[in-house]
Design a protein around this nucleic acid. Structure first.
Length: 723
DNA sequence: ATAAAACGATTTTTT
DNA sequence: ATCGTTTTAT
């Protein structure tokens, strides 16, 4: 057996992980250390050397993109196609299980997936249906609650309200929402995971089958798994099958969405024989950039511990620019990019601008437009999430499943056909009273002539239209079905009415949907046994599509720090480095959340290959008024010797460069270090967040578990250090 | 049924 | 400031 193609391209640490025994393994893979490569080569190793059949491998990722990349890289390494191997997202694989075992999972065979927008609408309707005031019970909050409970594996009947009124109402909403989903055959994202976990837990014959099938389980981005996902993995693993988990605790930035970094620690105790590997050699960035990243992340307390290094050189220093305001900041970045393109022979798409919040992109866009610099903003609405597309899909869904109430509500008056609020309210009441779907309620109401003539006619017209559509599209090809529906429903005409740019693009999108349907192939095993339309609808829900169509132009890349995870660029700007913005004011007071912000900064820094530029503005217009935020504490956590200030400003008090000295000298003088745990006689235990001043006026900001954050004068506070 | 006016929120978002 | 949502007026 020639193992050289598999092992030769790897470094020592990677090789050890790839060729490790068939035992549980945890690979802590630093940024740019070849994480995907290890995963891909491990699969190849299993197939080629350990003679594991691809049918026995389950590889799980978070995004469709990562799944597709992994599959194609394994295929090109093995030079064969991996038909039988299950590579997919947690949601995709859960979905596949539920489709196969829909009966055991107590689902309708034709269940459809509710995306988060659909979910919000449904939650809102449920709240109103319970007679609650939706301003007192915001749908967003209820959705957050429901998803949170599902991610903890909790069903309404398991939850105690502890006599709390708020909890009791939320549980009521959850219960009613779930009932609505069951009745209409809809499944939300969290439900896909929980339902498939329950399926496995409650049906031993099914879990036994899959445990016998999947002898090897591989997971990407393990630090991002939530508690249900980890449980789900453990079911597949059972006692027998080793999990090969790859992740980076320092890149865990989705804690606010339920990701549990603790799963990494649990893994060690859950699998005692687990081998731990660390990948610390970085192939992406210069030494300077890595030193900055190492130093910054060193301020976090709860880490596995890891230090990136490279064989490469130091490269350029990190530039720091202090802008007067956000306009100045954007102009500076634009100039720097021009310089990169014109004198350094770089390309625009090698430059990325990373910011904490989406709102920050605007100023950059304005400046780029006036200077004619092509750019591309990541994020925003994706294809299948656009309103007009969702309208068209709702027609398709309703024509397929008349019980789909959310789709019914969405399109009953789109385009407007004289079915107003009152009529819809009547339908809702009637359906609720008689336990009917909206469609059935409409039929009954028409039969009984309960509506005024005008509303009755309009509703009748709608029902006739749906009947006609259902009849017309029977037997047509998928793309013909889509085309027929968008034409006959009047959606195209509706959007094409006024000739504005926006309406033009909506019509184009609808036409694009026909093209997407034409290009949609059922060849994926995922869609085995499904009707083409069901499969297409599933595809639309599970894969929302790219933010923008392929943009091959040479564009500057603008995105949030979150969106940058997994990407790399020769030239990276991290902008808006101000306390209150980044770290966000909403996370600054809580040590755990501040650490996540710091990891986000670490992610940003480690995106850069050659050149990293940091900027902050002394004054920034936020929410309509001018704010003067102090420079981000993260700037001072980068060693000053790595930083070159672009505009050194002698006269003005600017502690930026001195700040890291300041934190260090503060520690030397007072013995109090940022991040240290302390106790206070009155306030109890806490963590040091920040420090300032010296001598008798030295003060520290401490976050106490019970009373929140406080600034304390060291001389009076009588803090005790904890080990 | 549409348009204007008032209101309110405003970190990040893999599926 | 600005964007999306909801209320109110035409």
């Amino acid at each position: 057996m020639d193992v050289s193609p598999i092992l030769d391209p790897l470094n020592e640490a990677q090789r050890e992980a790839v060729a490790s025994e068939m035992l549980p393994a945890l690979v802590i893979a630093g940024a740019g250390s070849g994480k995907t490569r290890v995963l891909v080569h491990r699969i190849a190793w299993l197939c080629e050397v350990e003679s594991v059949s691809p049918y026995s491998i389950l590889a799980v990722t978070f995004t469709n993109k990562a799944a597709a990349e992994m599959r194609s890289r394994v295929e090109s390494l093995l030079e064969s196609s991996l038909g039988g191997m299950w590579i997919g997202t947690f949601h995709g694989i859960s979905h596949r299980l539920l489709r196969t075992h829909w009966q055991e999972a107590k689902l309708k065979q034709s269940f459809q997936i509710l995306d988060s927008d659909d979910q919000l609408r449904l939650v809102k309707r449920v709240i109103l249906g319970l007679g609650l005031d939706d301003t007192k019970w915001p749908a967003k909050h209820a959705r957050w609650y429901i998803n949170g409970r599902k991610e903890e594996g909790q069903r309404p009947q398991h939850i105690q309200d502890h006599g709390d009124v708020t909890d009791r109402q939320l549980i009521r909403i959850y219960t009613a929402y779930q009932a609505a989903c069951e009745q209409t055959g809809l499944v939300d994202f969290a439900e896909l995971l929980l339902r498939s976990l329950e399926l496995l837990q409650q049906n031993p014959e099914i879990s036994t089958h899959y445990k016998a099938k999947f002898r090897h389980i591989l997971v990407d981005e393990f630090q991002d798994t939530n508690s249900i996902q980890y449980q789900w993995l453990k079911v597949f693993a059972g006692e027998e099958n080793p999990i090969f988990a790859v992740g980076d605790d320092d890149q865990s930035i989705y804690g606010w969405r339920g990701a549990r970094i603790e799963n990494i620690h649990s893994f060690e105790s859950d699998y005692k024989q687990a081998q731990i590997f660390k990948l610390e050699q970085n192939y992406r960035s210069t030494n300077t950039i890595l030193s900055a990243a190492n130093s910054l992340i060193g301020n976090n307390q709860s880490r596995m511990g890891k230090k990136l290094w490279t064989e490469g050189g130091d490269g350029e220093p990190i530039y720091l620019y202090t802008a007067f305001n956000e306009q100045d900041e954007a102009r500076f970045v634009a100039d720097k990019i021009k310089h990169w393109v014109e004198t350094c022979n770089g390309r625009r798409d090698e430059a990325a601008i990373l910011y904490r919040s989406n709102a920050q992109s605007r100023v950059f866009e304005e400046v780029f437009i006036t200077q004619s610099i092509p750019y591309r903003v990541y994020g925003g609405f994706r294809f299948f999430e656009r309103a007009e597309i969702k309208d068209a899909l709702a027609y398709l869904r309703l024509s397929k499943n008349s019980a789909d109430d959310p789709s019914f509500e969405r399109i009953v008056n789109v385009p407007t056909r004289g079915i107003g609020q009152r009529t819809v309210a009547m339908l809702r009441d009637f359906s609720k009273q008689h336990q009917l779907t909206l469609w059935e309620a409409a039929e009954k109401i028409l039969q009984a002539s309960l509506l005024a003539a005008r509303a009755s006619n309009a509703l009748q017209e709608f029902m006739r239209l749906m009947h006609k559509l259902r009849h017309d599209i029977d037997g047509l090809e998928l793309d013909e079905q889509v085309d027929h529906i968008i034409q006959v429903s009047g959606l195209v005409k509706h959007h094409g009415r006024d000739g504005s740019e926006k309406s033009k693009s909506r019509v184009e999108n609808l036409e694009e949907l026909v093209v997407a349907a034409r290009g949609f192939h059922m060849d994926d095993e995922l869609y085995e046994g499904m009707q083409p339309l069901d499969a297409f609808l599933t595809h639309a829900s599970l894969e929302a599509g790219e933010g923008q169509g392929a943009q091959w132009d040479d564009c500057v890349q603008l995105m949030t720090l979150h969106a940058s995870k997994g990407l790399e660029f020769p030239l990276v700007f991290i902008v808006g480095l101000e306390d209150g913005l980044f770290p966000s004011s909403m996370s600054m007071e809580e040590p755990g959340r501040l650490e996540e912000e710091r990891r986000l900064c670490y992610v940003g820094i480690t995106r850069a290959r050659q050149q990293l530029v940091l900027t902050y503005a002394e004054s920034r217009r936020q929410y309509g008024s001018d704010n003067y935020n102090p420079p981000s504490r993260f700037i001072s956590e980068v060693p000053a010797e790595l930083i070159a200030e672009v505009r050194p400003r002698a006269a003005v008090t600017k502690p930026t460069v001195r700040a890291s000295f300041q934190a260090n000298s503060f520690a030397a003088e007072t013995g109090v270090k940022i991040g240290a745990r302390v106790t206070h006689v009155k306030f109890g235990e806490g963590v040091v967040l920040d420090c300032e001043g010296k001598g008798s006026s030295a003060r520290v900001q401490v976050h106490f578990e019970n009373v929140g954050s406080k600034w304390l004068v060291l001389a009076y506070a009588n803090l005790d250090m904890l080990a």
